[in-house]
Amino acid sequence: MFLSKLLESVKQTAREAGQHLWQLYQSGDFVAEQKADTSPVTSADLAANALIIARLSDLTPDIPIISEETTIMPLAQRQHWPRYWLIDPMDGTQEFVARSGDFAVSIALVEHGWPALGVIYWPKEDILYYATRGHGSFKQQRNLINRIRVHQHQQGDVLRIAVSRRQPLQPIVALLSERQSVEYIPLGSCSLKSCLVAEGKADCYLRLGPTGEWDTGAVHIIVEEAGGKILDSQFSPLSYNQRETLANPDFMVIGQAELPWRELIQAKPTTRPLLS
């Protein structure tokens, strides 16, 4: 009941932040910079961040917030939080700057170390993906709402892999069994590629390279409620708020769990050092 009461307000917040991002995207009225880790950030990220934090603080003043665009508290101060908001005000900043339109707002509620509510909003397409624990995953485009599920493979089906528009394809190709026919589906934004798996338009997404827990929090519950999984390079579940750093290892988003993924993904992605 607690989650269902929050959901509509969180969807509204994600849409409001996303529409503000879209206005800035169309007008070009933003400034792009580099963070200390060389990843891009724009004034639009920061504006969306401020809006989301203000809305969530009004909605649930007693629930703390972790965001990609704010200073992260030491683990000692946050490790015993029973719940917290985990947000990425703009997932796909590179895509925003490159003018592809493949960027999204990501908001998750993590309870007892695991995502319990997740909302992704894609401004370009006016699409909301969302889920709450135990109630399924949904895709809403304007007023049309459909429940989504991962694709159920039939023998001989081509394996569809979601891939980045900006990163080399060869490292992904090297991980896959040569016996499997593969189709690559390019899209920006980590969360949007994961949502492709959740709605059955892709079967897998392999992520090699730096990400944070805010990149997976919301999509984790969306993918799982749709019948899929997000696993690290050793085929183990990701964890949340367990380490000083909030960096993710390399991970995979898989659809139909019954497929022989350990055979299809022949060489496991290397687990990236978790930098502080």
Results as ranks from 00 to 15, higher is better:
residue 1 M to Q: 12
residue 4 S to R: 14
residue 5 K to T: 13
residue 5 K to R: 14
residue 7 L to P: 00
residue 9 S to K: 15
residue 12 Q to W: 05
residue 14 A to D: 07
residue 15 R to L: 10
residue 18 G to V: 06
residue 19 Q to N: 13
residue 23 Q to A: 07
residue 24 L to D: 06
residue 26 Q to M: 06
residue 27 S to Y: 04
residue 27 S to Q: 09
residue 28 G to W: 06
residue 32 A to T: 07
residue 33 E to W: 03
residue 36 A to S: 14
residue 38 T to W: 04
residue 49 N to I: 00
residue 57 S to Y: 01
residue 62 D to R: 13
residue 70 T to E: 12
residue 70 T to F: 04
residue 71 T to C: 02
residue 72 I to L: 15
residue 81 W to I: 08
residue 82 P to G: 04
residue 84 Y to S: 03
residue 90 M to E: 09
residue 90 M to Y: 04
residue 91 D to N: 09
residue 95 E to W: 03
residue 102 D to W: 11
residue 103 F to C: 02
residue 103 F to R: 02
residue 107 I to C: 07
residue 110 V to Y: 05
residue 115 P to D: 11
residue 121 Y to W: 01
residue 123 P to R: 09
residue 124 K to L: 09
residue 128 L to T: 02
residue 133 R to N: 12
residue 134 G to E: 04
residue 140 Q to I: 01
residue 141 Q to R: 10
residue 145 I to C: 07
residue 146 N to Y: 02
residue 146 N to D: 09
residue 150 V to G: 08
residue 151 H to F: 15
residue 155 Q to L: 12
residue 156 G to A: 04
residue 159 L to W: 09
residue 160 R to C: 11
residue 160 R to M: 12
residue 162 A to H: 05
residue 169 L to G: 03
residue 173 V to T: 14
residue 176 L to S: 06
residue 180 Q to I: 15
residue 185 I to M: 13
residue 187 L to S: 08
residue 188 G to S: 02
residue 191 S to C: 14
residue 195 C to N: 10
residue 206 L to F: 00
residue 206 L to N: 02
residue 208 L to R: 07
residue 220 H to V: 00
residue 222 I to A: 07
residue 225 E to H: 01
residue 229 K to Q: 13
residue 233 S to G: 15
residue 242 Q to D: 07
residue 245 T to G: 13
residue 248 N to Y: 02
residue 250 D to E: 08
residue 251 F to W: 09
residue 254 I to Q: 03
residue 257 A to V: 14
residue 259 L to S: 01
residue 263 E to R: 12
residue 271 T to H: 08
residue 273 P to F: 10
